[in-house]
Design a protein around this nucleic acid. Structure first.
Lengths: 200, 200
DNA sequence: CAGGTTACATAATTTGAATTCTGTTACCAA
DNA sequence: TTGGTAACAGAATTCAAATTATGTAACCTG
């Protein structure tokens, strides 16, 4: 079980993930994590001060997993804002959907973990909102979107797409039509983001 | 405890609601319901075939509670479609918000009951979608909204407002700004519902 | 015979003793 | 001194026994 050298945080986090997948968050103990690493549970406590801290760290790692791919889309000024918004929202859904589909046990485990760790979740949301705001700001600057506060627009767009990214709606993401439904919402939102005075 | 005449369904449903509020859905038993009515639990079984059926009936009653008020708005052709849509969504949020605020214990109880009774929930959603579709169809007919299938538009609008009516987001409804947030989403959606060709 | 009762078998839930987990301490080795 | 161990007290969790609930049946009563 124990690979070559001494324990480091990353090894512990991976082992924790395995234990989480196998036993679920309710029954995953730090004794299990130690066992998976071929080490006593006290060794884990040399690296993380508490079980809670370990869970928080593993949650953060998981939430940050596809942050970079999304940031790449959000920051790509080659893509015009409307299409960028659409792509970003589609990518967000696709990423979450894939995680939920590919490893349902792990996803269910993390879902519970993250709802218990609302700090990590709040930071994740803040990060996403920052990315979204970037896209919208570009649209406002280039006069493709209405002249409103990008932060407020970001919040509204994020609210309106809750069903496509909030973990409470995981079940919906498996149904065939979701991507089209997001597309329909996107279309409504994007047209709604135009200058209001074009509708006299 | 037992009021005048013989038991009827309505009395039992009310007593069930009391028991639900007091004990919560996990510990509410039909023996409790009988006791609240000053009657043996077997008497309840003369009116409802099972505990499940009783819970379903009480859930339906609760879900239908503010259906008429909403239907009145949806069907009021005096109000122009855009404003009608806005009012209807605001009323939906206000109704749910009020229920959650005024009697949190009962709301929490029903929230669990309804998620266990997905049939009742599905019918409730279908009813709301029908009302929404009515508003949108009027908008399409009067050429205020884009010429699309009202059923699809209704689904998109309902999706985009998930955060403001889905019970998973009850917590959000208590925060001060929610109504403004719904308004912001509404504005985006309503402008988005205009003819697409005004943006060349 | 509609509307109620008590009595009962089986299913589900609670309870409390036994077990396991968490977090700490004292100690060891490179 | 960093990275590990074993042993421990108190907290949390499990599991089987005892209790309570569900649903049915046979039986009153106006």
């Amino acid at each position: 079980m124990r690979a070559g050298g001494p324990l480091d945080a990353e090894m512990i986090l991976s082992a924790t993930e395995d234990v989480l997948r196998r036993h679920g968050p309710a029954k995953a103990t730090v004794v299990d994590v130690g066992r998976a690493l071929g080490v006593s549970h006290a060794a884990v406590y040399k690296h993380f001060p508490s079980k809670t801290a370990l869970r928080e760290a593993v949650s953060r790692r998981w939430l940050n997993q596809d942050r970079d791919a999304l940031a790449a889309i959000a920051g790509d000024s080659e893509i015009p804002p409307r299409q960028r918004l659409r792509s970003w929202l589609a990518a967000l859904l696709a990423a979450k959907r894939a995680k939920a589909h590919d490893d349902p046990e792990l996803f269910a485990a993390y879902r519970i973990l993250v709802t218990e760790n609302s700090d990590a979740a709040a930071e994740h949301v803040a990060d996403l909102l920052r990315q979204l705001q970037g896209i919208l700001a570009d649209g406002v600057t280039s006069a493709v979107f209405r002249d409103a506060d990008p932060a407020e627009l970001a919040l509204a767009v994020f609210s309106a797409t809750t069903r496509f990214h909030h973990p409470a709606h995981t079940g919906d993401w498996q149904t065939p039509g979701v991507e089209d439904e997001l597309d329909a919402v996107c279309t409504l939102l994007i047209d709604g983001l135009g200058h209001p005075d074009v509708h006299p």
